Simulated scan of single mutants.
Amino acid sequence: MNADLDLRKLRYFVAVADKLNFARAAEVLMIAQPVLSRQIRAFEAELGVQLFVRDTRGTELTDEGRLLYEEAEALLASAAAVRRRVAIAARGESEFTVGFMPGLTVTTPVRAFQRTYPDVSIHVMRTSWDDQVRVLHDGRADVSYLRRPFDAAGLATELLFSEPRVVMLPTDHELAAAPSVTMGDLAGEHLLQDPAAVPEWATIAAEMRRRRGSAPPPSRTVEEKLELVAVGRGIAILPRSTALFYRRADVAFVPVSDLPPTDVLLGWEGSRRSRLIEAFIAAARDTTHELGSN
């Protein structure tokens, strides 16, 4: 076995182990599937073990693969912690970065923070479901506005506000003018996003797979989702503030009455102590009513 463990290949391995599907893992990693397959074969050669078995039934972990999968989270977390400490040390307290999810406008809290610390260079960073937490763990952001669901391990968070969820429909859809809909009303539709972002969709998704087989892969960005909604390829369920932010003439949004509200939280790395983080938390609290009133 090679003495050095390639962390990039380890991340590729974890992506495949998570999905047990090379095509879906390649989509998550945003690389070509043949490239991913070559990297996994190279990783297996470096380790001197077989990590996956691929046959007509699909992809499965070997015993050695399961062992590495169990250890991989701690290895990657440790590496991320080192990167985070180095990134934070390099910035010192002269720079401060705020992450935010699509549909959230953070201008007001950023300005309030800047008035308190005019000498600090403040930056903003748009995040996604995939990296909204990762930017905190790897040090790219000092604080980040988060939408559930997310893995809160290692984070400190503060609830800012809750808001209703709506379904995005093409304007010529039969439900587009309805005052509200239920999840049952949407049972025949194709969801254009990862069902993990809408956990309540799980029962419907299982039924749709039984009737139709596998669905097309989910769309990545809000803009892509809305393009597909507009041409009738499916639906998206979004927070109301996101729907308002991305409003367009060919897409309507309708409240989903039996979905609970979704939360917006401010998160930061739980072990950090920083006067700048404390100052931004205070600014976020003071301006929450504006952030949630889109």
Rank of each mutant, 00 (worst) to 15 (best):
A3P: 08
L10S: 00
L10D: 01
A15V: 01
V16C: 01
D18V: 06
D18K: 12
K19W: 09
N21K: 09
M30Q: 15
I31N: 00
V35S: 13
R38F: 09
Q39H: 13
L47M: 12
R54Q: 15
D55K: 07
R57K: 10
R57D: 14
L68K: 00
L76T: 02
A77W: 02
A77H: 10
S78N: 13
A79H: 11
A79N: 03
R85Y: 03
A87T: 05
I88Q: 10
R91C: 09
G92C: 05
F96W: 08
T97D: 02
F100H: 15
P102V: 06
G103V: 06
T105V: 12
P109D: 10
A112K: 08
T116H: 10
D119V: 09
V120C: 04
H123Q: 14
T127W: 05
D131Y: 03
Q132N: 04
R140C: 07
R140V: 13
V143H: 00
P149E: 06
P149V: 02
F150M: 08
D151K: 07
G154T: 05
A156G: 11
F161Q: 01
E163I: 02
P164V: 05
R165Y: 08
R165W: 04
V167M: 07
M168H: 01
T171C: 11
H173G: 03
E174C: 08
E174Q: 12
L175P: 00
L175N: 10
A176C: 08
A177L: 09
P179A: 15
S180C: 09
T182P: 07
M183L: 15
G184V: 12
G184I: 03
G184H: 12
D185R: 12
E189L: 04
L192N: 04
A196S: 12
A196E: 15
A197T: 15
E200D: 15
T203F: 06
I204R: 03
A206D: 14
A206G: 14
R212C: 08
R212S: 13
G213Q: 06
P218Y: 05
R220A: 14
R220S: 14
T221E: 10
V229H: 00
A230G: 11
S241K: 00
A243F: 01
L244P: 00
F245D: 13
F245R: 15
V251M: 05
A252V: 03
F253S: 07
F253N: 03
D258Y: 08
P260R: 10
T262L: 07
W268N: 02
E269S: 11
G270L: 05
S271G: 13
R273G: 09
R275V: 11
E278T: 13
I281E: 13
I281A: 14
A284D: 06
S293V: 13
